[in-house]
Design a binder for these strands. Structure first.
Lengths: 238, 238
DNA sequence: AAGTGGTCTAGACCACAAC
DNA sequence: TTGTGGTCTAGACCACTTT
């Protein structure tokens, strides 16, 4: 994956904590011990431990050591930036994706605004619904700038767009600005989802950026109220 | 505040970006330049820049430099761990807090579970509603372990509990596990909030931890659907 | 070729917790 | 007093972008 020393060490201990080999409340070996076992410098060990702390695996306490946190009940999957496919694979639910719209279009005013596109930019529009355990629950509306994604197909959209972008196109998705609000249900929502008598829907709006800070995708993920869940680990201040 | 060199540098550039003195798309001085202007080592500069990157102020690109991101439209306030008071002060809205319940109690089963409390722990229970621009919109239910908060008063709860905990009690709130879901409206919600004909409500559940990794507070923040908004900046992978 | 950020090293001194 | 994590330094080499 990466040939960073500190990242390998991070993965190794993240795995030990996730698997339960090390239990919440226990203390990791000290930084000095770790420099010896890994034959590396202390700053490198500290980079690995800081990653663990940032991601909610440990809490570092001055004078004491690195305390393992309870990461089990976090059900991390929905946190941060993850694609539907990654989530569903981890959670072991039966899922199915249906593509309802797939087109290359000129951006309308709304999309031009969201993607900061120029009038001559072309945009892929994809509308998909997600079936989880037999119910149509999520409606995903994706808009991608053709500038960054020259080719796309309906078949790719039935799988994971992200996998295609990262593995085939070697695009590096780097960060996203996310907004969660609740909106009134639209006709489109009712058309593709099983909404019963719900008249509101949770909308997750995402602006996604590449590693050169270029905005390349705008996504609206529309979730039925009763099935929506978002979990997050947040450190205060810095 | 802190006498870290890297944190001071971070604050300085965060301010320059927030104020618009440096505009989105511009490039920061190189790390080598910054070591000279601050007469410090490169690793220290890098700590400051990494903080800026983590918090969505810049994007670092190898071979190019640190690109300033558009932080304006993020309306950061609701991101991560922030108290109601901090949010309302930044946004300049007229807000008012009403304390409906204030008591020291033995934890029931639910609270015992949420706070991982022993039967002999005592718990502060506070129920407050938040009035924003003349409407009762948010219902906050707080449970704090007396173990960590020996004294509390109704007056303190009318202001900011967090300010009291951090400034007076010198508690260091360090991180939180947050969960956002939608629930059916309860009688209690209707009693204290102006819910019109909404029959669902957005619930933000928070488990809050001190810097020694001790869980000390469980909070449910219940928001009227139409007024709820959550924004987040998320980096992919590490 | 020159400049940029990314990784890594081997030391140093400090504040804090435990013994 | 000893061990812990937190900060800081001055150097090194690398991969990448720009000129």
């Amino acid at each position: 994956m990466r040939n960073n020393k500190y990242y390998t060490i991070y993965l190794e201990w993240a795995e030990k904590i996730k698997s339960g080999e090390i239990k919440p409340g226990e203390i990791l070996p000290s930084e000095n011990d770790l420099t010896k076992t890994y034959k590396t410098s202390r700053e490198t060990i500290r980079k690995a431990l800081n990653l663990l702390a940032q991601n909610g695996f440990i809490q570092k306490v001055k004078g004491k050591g690195s305390i393992v946190l309870d990461v089990q009940k976090m059900s991390l999957p929905f946190s941060g930036l993850v694609s539907f496919k990654e989530v569903s694979e981890h959670s072991g639910m039966k899922t199915k994706t249906t593509v309802h719209e797939f087109a290359l279009m000129k951006p309308n005013e709304f999309i031009k605004q969201q993607l900061q596109a120029s009038p001559k930019d072309e945009v892929w529009k994809i509308v998909r619904s997600r079936n989880i355990n037999g119910e149509e629950i999520i409606l995903d509306k994706d808009y991608l700038l053709r500038k960054h994604v020259p080719f796309l197909s309906k078949e790719i959209c039935e799988g994971s767009i992200y996998e295609y972008l990262e593995k085939k196109l070697k695009l590096n998705i780097s960060f996203a600005k996310k907004e969660i609000i609740v909106e009134k249900v639209t006709d489109e929502d009712r058309k593709y989802l099983e909404l019963d008598r719900f008249d509101h829907i949770v909308v997750v709006k995402n602006h996604v950026y590449l590693d050169d800070a270029a905005l390349f995708q705008y996504t609206e993920s529309r979730h039925r109220l009763d099935k929506f869940r978002f979990v997050d680990f947040a450190r205060r201040g810095l």
